[in-house]
Every structure is written in C-alpha cells, then in structure tokens.
Amino acid sequence: MGETKTKKTPRAAKAPASQRAEVWRVVVLNDPVNRMSYVVMVLRRVFGFAEERARKHMLEIHEQGRSVLWSGTREQAEAYVFALQQWHLTAVVQPEPAA
C-alpha cells in the first residue's frame, strides 16, 4: 500500500442513472478502539479538513455514535468510504434523505 496516497475505490461507475443522480452521504460510526487523535488525523488526511472541523466531527462520532462527514456524488462518497476503511474506521455510504 502507498504511504500517503488514497487508493481509488475499486468501483467502476456503473450505478444506474437514477442512483447516480441522488446525493449520497459518507457517515462514520463510533468504534471502541481508535484513539481520538488518530480519528482526527484520518479525517484531516482523507477529507482535507482543518483541525477544528476534524475535531468537531470526531467529537460528534464519539458522543453521538455517528457523524455525516460529506455528501455529494455516489462515486466520490464510495471513494471516501474506501479510504476511511483503509484506515480501519467504520464508514458507510447512505443516500441523503429526501427534503
């Protein structure tokens, strides 16, 4: 594995057009192992967040059990989730609820 690069998701863009058109969320769930400073570091690396924003999400994960990190295209959401799983964070892609 590369040292700092984020691997591309293995997914080829093949979701149906109806799915591609939706907005998708990247959600990180709490886990009992990874230390807080590790989670902050991973969020900064993967999303390019500033320290303060990464810390806010980390606390949300810790206190509420989950945090929505990003929303946008399905393909980019999958790439983020793959990168987070490489760092052993529990991350899922979810469709954004309709307004």
């Binding site: 293995p10 959401a77 999958e78 529990t90």
Partner: peptide
C-alpha cells in the same frame, strides 16, 4: 479484515 467492510454496492464481484 480487522473491521468487516460495508459495501456501497450490491454487486458480488465489486
């Protein structure tokens, strides 16, 4: 895997 992967696709090969 240390943490079971969650998959965004319902596609076995993927």
């Amino acid at each position: 895997l240390a943490i079971r992967a969650t998959f965004p696709e319902n596609d076995e090969e993927f």
